[in-house]
């Protein structure tokens, strides 16, 4: 189980957080998503290592931009 923090731009409210969460939760292996709108971050917990490209694709599918890789 790993948890990584990603920076996402453009989120402004709880609805934004919901849209981003919905898309990331579709990724195989993701067990939890925690969005901090104020900080512009998303903490993704997963039972496998996620490629940055697939996280970026999910964030962009929601309409937002991944601006920082997982840490």
């Amino acid at each position: 189980m790993t948890a990584k923090t990603y920076a996402v731009s453009g989120m402004a409210c709880g609805h934004c957080a919901g849209f981003v969460t919905d898309e990331i939760e579709r990724l195989a292996g993701v067990t939890a998503v925690a969005v901090d709108v104020e900080a512009g971050t998303v903490i993704i917990t997963s039972d496998r290592d996620l490629a940055v490209a697939e996280v970026r694709a999910a964030v962009e599918e929601a309409g937002y931009d991944l601006v920082g890789p997982g840490r």
């Binding site: 989120m11 402004a12 409210c13 709880g14 849209f19 929601a62 309409g63």
Partner: peptide, 22 residues
């Protein structure tokens, strides 16, 4: 301030990108 989330000018501008994309 929407549901406790504070947005200033910069955040409003950043929020236009997902609005336009969606």
């Amino acid at each position: 301030i929407a549901d406790g989330h504070r947005m200033d000018r910069d955040k409003l501008i950043a929020h236009t990108r997902p609005v336009r994309k969606n």
